[in-house]
Structures are given as C-alpha cells and as structure tokens.
C-alpha cells in the first residue's frame, strides 16, 4: 500500500474534471448514456447530478477503505462501494423526482458501470486522502454534469425548440438533433469545441488524458 501523495491544488483538481480531463468530451467515457439521456436538459441535469453525487461519495469512501482491503480484490470492493451509492441515489430520485426518473431511471442504475467513476477511484483515491478525493470527485462529477447539461440544452433547443420544456424557438425544430444520430453529432461538435479552445490556449491535441481507458 503506497503512501499518500501530495495532492495538487484544489483549483487544479476542479478544473481537471471540467476541462482537461472532462469525462465525456476529453476521455470519451460513458457516451452511451450521454447520448441517450441528453434529449432534454432536465434529463441530462438529473443524470448529471446523480453521477456527481455518486462520484464524490465513491471517491471518498474508496479513499477511506483502501488501507483495509487487499489490493487484489480492490476492483470488486470498489464496484460494491459504487453500487451502494448508486442504489441510494436511485431510490432517492425514484421517490422525489418520479417524472424525470421514468425517462432516465435505467441509466441511473447503469452508473455502477460508468468507467469514469471506478477509474477515478483507481487513479486518485488509491493515492490520496479523503479531502483531496472530495475535490477530485467534485471536479469529475461537475465535468460530467456540465457536459450532459450542455448537450441536453443544445439538443432540446434545436431538436424540440424548447428549454426545460418551455417553447422558445420561433421556427420548426430539427427533429434529427433529438434522434440518437443527432446525439453523436452534438457530442462530436462539443468535443471539437473543447479541442479548439485547447489549441487556442496553446496546447497540443490531447492524447487520451489521464490514462483512463474503458
């Protein structure tokens, strides 16, 4: 079991999840739910919040238990930890936000299998104490949340002509944008935007980010 590393500054940990290693637009993780739920802002927001909470709690609890588990079984243990928080989140959402839950409930349960969550536990929680894990989880979760809300807003505005269900567009919306194909176009466009901003800031094109694959 390795000693704790010195955590990076809080701002770095937050911004990393939002921009440099944004789970959706930089690491291209969890694209299936990202395409499936972003047909409306509300759906994206709900799944985003669920992922944010699960990510923060999983990262922190992973950091807490890492000294008492055998490293060989850390992946099943981490998965169980994630499953605990996902189950709790699932029940809360089902109880208090029944209407949105009808549409995204399936993907809330799927959070257990989101690669971003277990990859943060592997990459970050294993090496850091609880407080930095909170910030790292918050950054990653916010990155996911912002990504889903961005994609959801774009698709709901152009595809249904509304935002949060309120009609705003004066012309006939482009149905294609809310279809799955439009979801991929949207994610691709926002990815391009991220890369463009990165190039403008003088960076080279990303080569996969923080080693999180799968």
């Amino acid at each position: 079991m390795s000693e704790h590393r010195t955590p990076p500054p809080v701002s770095t940990m937050l911004m990393r999840g939002l921009f440099e290693e944004n789970p959706i637009f930089r690491l291209a993780l969890s694209l299936c739910p990202a395409v499936a739920v972003t047909t409306a802002v509300k759906n994206g927001l709900m799944l985003g919040v669920a992922v944010l909470v699960v990510q923060v709690l999983s990262s922190m609890s992973g950091s807490l238990v890492k000294h008492i588990i055998n490293p060989k079984i850390r992946i099943p243990v981490f998965t169980l930890l994630i499953a605990i928080w996902v189950s709790a989140m699932d029940m809360i959402l089902a109880a208090y936000f029944a209407d949105v839950y009808q549409q995204v409930g399936l993907y809330v349960k799927l959070i257990v299998a989101f690669a971003i969550i277990i990859s943060r536990m592997e990459l970050f929680s294993m090496k850091h104490s609880v407080v930095p894990c909170f910030w790292d989880g918050l950054g990653m979760g916010l990155g996911f949340l912002v990504g889903l809300v961005l994609a959801g807003a774009f698709r709901e505005l152009l595809g249904s002509g509304s935002i949060f269900g309120i009609a705003v567009l004066p012309f006939k919306p482009l149905l294609l944008v809310v279809l799955p194909a439009g979801g991929f176009f949207t994610i691709g466009l926002i990815m391009a935007l991220f890369n463009w901003v990165d190039i403008k800031r003088g960076h080279k094109l990303p080569a996969g980010g923080g080693g999180a694959h799968g």
């Binding site: 006939k172 482009l174 149905l175 294609l176 279809l179 194909a181 439009g182």
Partner: peptide
C-alpha cells in the same frame, strides 16, 4: 437522409 430524419 438527414432531411428524412429531420422533416419526415
């Protein structure tokens, strides 16, 4: 194809 999906 895009127009078929957009303006069916």
């Amino acid at each position: 194809a895009m127009m078929m999906a957009t303006f069916p």
